[in-house]
Simulated scan of single mutants.
Amino acid sequence: MSAPSPARPISVLCVDDHPLLRDGIAAIIESQSDIVLVGEASNGHEAIALHRSLKPDITLMDLQMPELDGISAIEQICGENPKALIVVLTTYEGDVQAVRALKAGASSYLLKASLRHELLGTIHSVYEGKRFISPEVAQQIALHSMREQLSSREVSVLELVANGKANKDIAGRLSVSEETVKAHLRSIFLKLDVVDRTQAAAVAIRRGIIPLH
């Protein structure tokens, strides 16, 4: 038995810096009588301003955006309105990024590859007070939840590694010795279960430990 339709359409704000994706979401919602797209934003600043003025029931939020990223926008929106319902839209299955978004206040976490099949159901579920996390993401969270997390300094080292910096350059930027950098790298390799710098950078980007630029 399907849930009863709300007395008024569920209002949705879509936040993504790619116009084609926003158009795709608009097309999915357009055919629904009980959901209405009330606004679109292309970055976090616009999202915050539109959330204040439109007060949507549901906000669909991308994470990787210019000017202000999605997680920062989620934190501010939920800080102003703790009851805000935000569904993260992302291309990546990264567990660290997902946990960060959920801790910031997101209600659900949906992969963009699943939008056509899961968007409408997710909107209804979140509106009814439920959470939804894409199975692929939930699996990654469960897989890595018991592993030791990287320290903030290790993340800083890893970001520089991903940007192609040598140990000497990393040491200079962080004002530490090269031996300290090597020690951080040994710890990083152990925690991420990798054997070299290239693998470490790839795993860190995939899991959302460091941002993809």
Rank of each mutant, 00 (worst) to 15 (best):
I35W: 06
S152M: 11
A166C: 08
I74E: 11
S175P: 00
I133H: 02
A201G: 15
V126M: 05
Q139S: 13
H51R: 08
T91K: 09
L158W: 10
I10T: 05
Q140I: 01
S152K: 15
E148C: 00
Q199P: 00
L63W: 05
V15K: 07
L158H: 12
H124G: 01
I58C: 04
L143I: 09
G39A: 02
I74F: 13
P9V: 07
Y109R: 04
G105T: 14
S175A: 13
Q199A: 12
L102V: 11
G208Q: 08
S152N: 10
L13K: 08
Q149V: 09
V126I: 09
R207D: 10
D17M: 05
T198R: 12
L120F: 05
L54S: 04
A27E: 12
A204Y: 03
E40I: 08
I35D: 05
C78R: 15
L190S: 12
E67V: 14
V99N: 00
A202K: 14
H184D: 15
I28H: 04
V203L: 08
Q149I: 04
K182F: 01
V137P: 02
K168M: 15
E46D: 13
S175V: 08
E30W: 03
H144I: 01
V194Q: 07
P82F: 07
V96P: 00
L158R: 08
S2T: 15
L110T: 06
G172F: 09
I170C: 09
R8C: 03
V126C: 04
D95T: 01
F132Q: 06
T180S: 14
V87G: 01
L89P: 01
V99W: 00
M65H: 03
S33N: 15
M65S: 06
Y127W: 13
T59Y: 08
I123C: 03
A41Y: 08
P135V: 10
L89Q: 08
G39S: 07
I133R: 03
R186P: 00
I74Y: 12
A200K: 08
E159K: 15
P56S: 02
I209H: 05
E178W: 02
E118T: 09
Q139G: 02
S151P: 02
E80N: 08
A73S: 14
E67C: 00
H45L: 13
E159T: 13
A27M: 13
Q199C: 01
V181E: 11
H184Q: 15
A201V: 10
V88P: 05
D16N: 06
L50E: 11
Y92Q: 14
K168P: 00
V176D: 08
L13C: 01
K55Y: 01
A98T: 06
S108G: 09
G39P: 04
S33C: 07
E154T: 11
K191R: 14
A73R: 04
H117I: 09
Y109W: 06
Q32A: 12
A27R: 13
P6N: 09
R131Y: 03
V157I: 15
N43Y: 07
A49D: 12
L89I: 11
A113P: 00
S72Y: 02
E179N: 13
P19C: 03
A27F: 07
L120V: 15
L160C: 06
H45M: 07
L63M: 12
S2G: 07
P4A: 12
L212C: 07
R116W: 00
P6T: 11
V99H: 00
V195Y: 02
L20W: 00
A113Y: 03
